[in-house]
Amino acid sequence: MKLTDILKELEQVQSEAFEEKADRRHILRNLGFKVAKIASPFAIAGLTVNKVAAKTTDILAEAIVFMLNMSYMQADFYKQALAVGGLIPDSQKGGFQKILKDKNAHIAYWISHLNKTGNVVPTVPAYDFTGKGTLPKTLSDYKAFLTLAHAIEDAGVRMYLTGIDMLISNKAFRSDAMNMATVNARHAAHVRLLRRNTGVDMMPWVSGTEAYSLVGEIKKAYQNEDNTNQLKVSTVGINGFDISFNAATEAFDEKMGLADAEIFMRPFIV
């Protein structure tokens, strides 16, 4: 491995460990999960047992638990929906079964790694996809179901982008999260296409914050999706090309931080 790799990892460990760790633990607890207790370190790039590695390990397990939060919610959502007779048209069940299969595979993969490293595997919370009554038709009306489905999918893409960032010090896990993030994006695009086909004027990618097509709590899934400044490069009308605000914001999905993820998910956790 290159020296710059190692230095980058150490640099990462420092900022992560000192700045955000306490905050993350707090948020994870609020989501109803027991924060992963670290019994044995993940192997990170040759840095084995020392204080730095122990802190990194903590962060890796927390990242996995963070992503599991969303994968649990997604899998339970489709499981419940597929069990309601007549909710999803027969012609579209295959697609949702495929999505559920992928989500379950994500869950199994992350759980296997928590187990292998002696970490606590969080239990699956009970979910109420009516948002405690604020979205009463979610599991009885197909259009209402699709509305929450794409919000959950888009939020999932965004949370996995955050997961990639939290796993930055570990190339293997970072790649795993990346390869799941693009699959989540495929699911999101499919669900959005289905909703478009019901007559809603929307595309398979996220335009701005999409406030127009969403109600109540699920708008929270789109906060900060309207970013038009990427690493200080302004993207609207970039280099004189006719690039609208919508196109500029659609071209990038944005990370969803832990605080926003909590705001979005909390109404659906009993």
Binding site: K171, S175, R186, A189, D253
Partner: peptide
Amino acid sequence: SGICKLLISEEHIQIVSKMAVVDARHSAI
């Protein structure tokens, strides 16, 4: 995704992953 695996800088990884998921949306449809 392969590029992301090899990049060193955190902000480079972020920016490429933020685009890759949009390319994945294209690919899906």
